[in-house]
C-alpha cells in the first residue's frame, strides 16, 4: 500500500465512525461525511488521473472508434455475413470473416453508428435476440471450420422493448453464454467502448477478455444504478465510483485479462493508432491460443470463468 491508499483507508474508517455515531445518537452529520467523501475522491483522482465518471464519458464519445474503424484497421479481406436464419438480420451486430495477420478469423461486433442515420439503422448498437442468434450462428460456423472467434463489445445494453421480449432476449443471451463456454475454437473478446450488462456479456465469454484503457464494463449503467440504489439518477457520477467499471478495476478483480493502451486523451484522438494497438494484442493472443489443444483450451476457459467471484467460506 502506498501513502495515498493509507490515507483513503483512514478516511473510510473515519466515515464509518461518523456513521456509527449518527446511528446511535441520531445527530445528522451527513455534511461531514460528504466533505470526507470529497477528500477521498480527490485522493483517488490523484492515483488515477481520470475519475470513473470521466472514463464513462470517454467510452461514450460519439467520435470514439467503432466496429468499422477496427474492421478497417485490423482485418484484411473482411466479408460481412447476415441474418440469424430464423427471423431477420439485426444490424446492431455485425459479423463476418477475414484475416487478422495470417489468421483467418470470424469477427463479430456490436455496431454503434457514428451519425443519427446509422444509429437508427443499427438501433444505437443495442441488439434484439436475433442479433445474438446471428452471432451464435457465426460462432458455431467458426467452430466447424476451426476458425478463432474475435468479438468486440460496444453496447449500452441489449434492447429493452416489446419485440425483444416476445422473441426471448433472455433466452438468446443465455444460449450464447452456454454455447460460448465450450465452443471448440479460441474466443477473444475486447471491450472497445461500453460494455453494458448481459447484452455485452453475450459476446464476452472468452479465453481472453481485454479492455481498451478507457472502455467501461458494468452490470448496470451508472445512471440506472443511481436511480435504483441512490434514488436519484443525477448521482450517476457517484455510482460510477461504486460500480468498479473501469479497465483497471476489472483487471484487479480478475474479470478481464489485460488492458489495451489508448492514445493520450482517448481512442478518439487517434483511431488508427488504437487499432494498431488492438491488432498487436490480438495477434499475440491468437499465436498463443491457436497452438493449444482445443480440449485443453475449453477446459482452461471453464476454469477461468469458474474462478470469477469473491466470497467467504
Amino acid at each position: 500500500m502506498n501513502d495515498v491508499d493509507i490515507k483513503i483507508k483512514e478516511i473510510d474508517e473515519k466515515i464509518k465512525k461518523i456513521k456509527d455515531f449518527m446511528n446511535s445518537s441520531g445527530i445528522d452529520l451527513s455534511g461531514e461525511i460528504e466533505s470526507l467523501n470529497q477528500k477521498k475522491n480527490e485522493l483517488i483522482k490523484s492515483l488515477n488521473p481520470k475519475s470513473p465518471w470521466e472514463i464513462v464519458q470517454i467510452a461514450r464519445q460519439k467520435s470514439r472508434p467503432n466496429y468499422e474503424d477496427y474492421i478497417n484497421g485490423i482485418i484484411d479481406s473482411f466479408i460481412e455475413f447476415h441474418g440469424d436464419r430464423s427471423f431477420r438480420d439485426d444490424a446492431a451486430i455485425v459479423g463476418g470473416i477475414g484475416f487478422i495477420d495470417k489468421f483467418p478469423v470470424t469477427f463479430i461486433s456490436h455496431a454503434k453508428g457514428k451519425n443519427i442515420e446509422e444509429n437508427v439503422k443499427r438501433n444505437f448498437g443495442s441488439p434484439h435476440p436475433e442479433g445474438y442468434r446471428k452471432a451464435l450462428r457465426l460462432m458455431k460456423q467458426a467452430e466447424k471450420f476451426k476458425r478463432p472467434v474475435v468479438c468486440f463489445i460496444d453496447t449500452s445494453g441489449a434492447y429493452c422493448g416489446v419485440g425483444a421480449e416476445e422473441r426471448g432476449q433472455g433466452e438468446a443471451i443465455a444460449r450464447n453464454l452456454l454455447e460460448m463456454s465450450d465452443l471448440k475454437t479460441p474466443i477473444i473478446s475486447v471491450v472497445i467502448g461500453e460494455g453494458g450488462s448481459g447484452g455485452a456479456l453475450a459476446l464476452g465469454v472468452a479465453d481472453r477478455v481485454f479492455m481498451l484503457e478507457n472502455a467501461i464494463y458494468s452490470v448496470i449503467s451508472p445512471e440506472g444504478c443511481a436511480s435504483i440504489l441512490l434514488k436519484d439518477s443525477g448521482r450517476a457520477n457517484e455510482a460510477a465510483n461504486y460500480l468498479k467499471l473501469t479497465s483497471r478495476d476489472l483487471l484487479e478483480l480478475k474479470v478481464i485479462d489485460g488492458i489495451i493502451k489508448e492514445p493520450s486523451g482517448g481512442a478518439h484522438n487517434d483511431a488508427e493508432l488504437t487499432a494498431k494497438n488492438v491488432k498487436s494484442v490480438l495477434i499475440d493472443a491468437l499465436n498463443e491460443l491457436t497452438k493449444m489443444d482445443v480440449n485443453d483450451l475449453v477446459e482452461k476457459r471453464y476454469d477461468k470463468i469458474r474462478s470469477i467471484g469473491v466470497f467467504l467460506e
Binding site: 443471451i173 443465455a174 453464454l177 460460448m180 463456454s181 450488462s197 448481459g198 456479456l201 464476452g204 465469454v205 464494463y217 458494468s218 452490470v219 448496470i220 444504478c225 435504483i228 440504489l229 461504486y242 460500480l243 468498479k244 467499471l245 476489472l250 478483480l253 474479470v255 470463468i305 469458474r306 470469477i308 467471484g309 469473491v310
Partner: peptide, 15 residues
C-alpha cells in the same frame, strides 16, 4: 444480477 457486486455478479451468469 446483484448490482452491489458489479461485474463479479454479471460474470456469475457465464459461470
Amino acid at each position: 444480477a446483484r448490482m452491489q457486486e458489479g461485474m463479479l455478479s454479471l460474470s456469475q451468469m457465464a459461470k
